[in-house]
Simulated scan of single mutants.
Amino acid sequence: MPEVLVVGAGPVGTLLAAELTRFGVDVAVLERRPAAGGGSRAIGLHAPTLAALESGGATERILTRAVRVRRGEARSDGRTLGVVDFGRLDARHPYVATLPQGETEAALRGDGPEPERGLTVTRVTRDRDRVRVDTDQGEHVAPIVVMAGGVGARGLVFRSTALRRTAYPDRYLMTDAALPPREDAETAVVHLAPGGVLESFPLPDGQRRFVAWDAGGSREPHALTARLREAMRERGESEAAELVTSATEFGVRRVLAPALRRDRLFVIGDAAHEISPIGGQGLNLGLLDAATLAPLLAAWTRLGSAPESDLAEWERDRLRSARVAGRLAAVNMGLGRPVSRRAHAVRSRVLGSVLTATGSLVPHAYAMGLDAAGR
């Protein structure tokens, strides 16, 4: 029987298992997917996350391939409204590191265990001194269980009525495209237009991630691609639009669990808090959940009793951080919605003034500087 059982082998579960292994904890991982990949495709790792991953070696592995984005620009109608200078961050890593999620997962794994794949968890039951996890292929038991299986794991722990949910009407189109060299190859760009926002993020090997607000329509693959290309033409990326060959879509909602711990059972990552994936705050929240929980669970297994006060503080901090990140994500979505041309002109002027006047405040907030783990 392992000392800790982790349900979910995405980035959050992978990191937790690797960190627990580094601390000498016997850990096992269960995963529904038969192979790695799929799910969220977040690409940005922020300063507090990179700092938290240093001691385990993951940051060094990530940075060997990642693009270090030190500058962001807000643009409208062909002109720059303002600059977000991540280089002004008072942090060990004054940039956003961008890397495809598959490579991030590989970097996070370190010496962690290989997951047992192809199992679907059907029930989680807490006993006095252990937690039982039933799957479609049998029973697993451990003194401590951590649910890191994303949205699909949430219903195994919480009643639907216990969750705080906010539904948003916004939908987005997304693609990654290989582009020829350009002057802003390592700059994150937000294009504001009357028809909605278009965000553009650099990736390794000349790739860029494009995300556009979508008015909706047919969900056929060719229709999604056509709408994204049209949005890119209208919002400032006409040359890149010609290189787009496919697109996916996603919606947005905000969900917050009432608690992250029930005695020996923990819930972290998207299973506990779901926010807009734009900007990568959701991924970073989950990774910081795991990085800050691992030493506490290691202490529990080593000493034989739970560090109750530290765990209570951890839970308060992570829930507070999730609330703050959710509010910031809602503000970002609001700024990127379609408006009239007159309102667009006003929005552009106001945003330009804010970016000029606030200095390092905007990059600090965007790059998870308000997270409790960054204190």
Results as ranks from 00 to 15, higher is better:
Ile144Glu: 05
Ala325Glu: 05
Leu63Gly: 08
Leu351Ser: 00
Leu370Gly: 07
Arg32Tyr: 04
Arg233His: 11
Ile62Ala: 08
His46Arg: 03
Asp26Leu: 00
Asp371Pro: 00
Arg164His: 15
Gly374Arg: 05
Glu3Ser: 12
Leu163Lys: 06
Val96Trp: 00
Ala17Arg: 09
Ala240Pro: 05
Arg71Glu: 14
Gly72Pro: 06
Ala257Leu: 00
Arg117Asp: 07
Ala231Tyr: 01
Pro169Phe: 12
Gly352Phe: 10
Thr120Leu: 11
Arg264His: 12
Thr135Tyr: 09
Asp134Gln: 14
Gly149Glu: 11
Ser360Pro: 10
Glu249Cys: 02
His93Arg: 01
Val96Lys: 03
Arg33Thr: 09
Val197Cys: 04
His364Gly: 10
Glu116Ser: 11
Leu173Tyr: 10
Leu203Gln: 08
Val141Met: 05
Ala343Thr: 09
Gly138Thr: 05
Val4Trp: 13
Ala367Gln: 10
Arg209Pro: 12
Gly57Asn: 09
Leu50Asn: 10
Asp176Asn: 15
Gly152Trp: 09
Glu73Asn: 03
Asn332Arg: 07
Thr49Asp: 01
Arg227Met: 07
Arg318Asn: 07
Leu256Ile: 01
Leu311Tyr: 12
Ser238Phe: 06
Ala91Arg: 15
Glu73Leu: 15
Glu54Ser: 13
Glu116Asp: 05
Glu274Pro: 01
Gly196Lys: 09
Arg342Phe: 13
Asp176Ile: 08
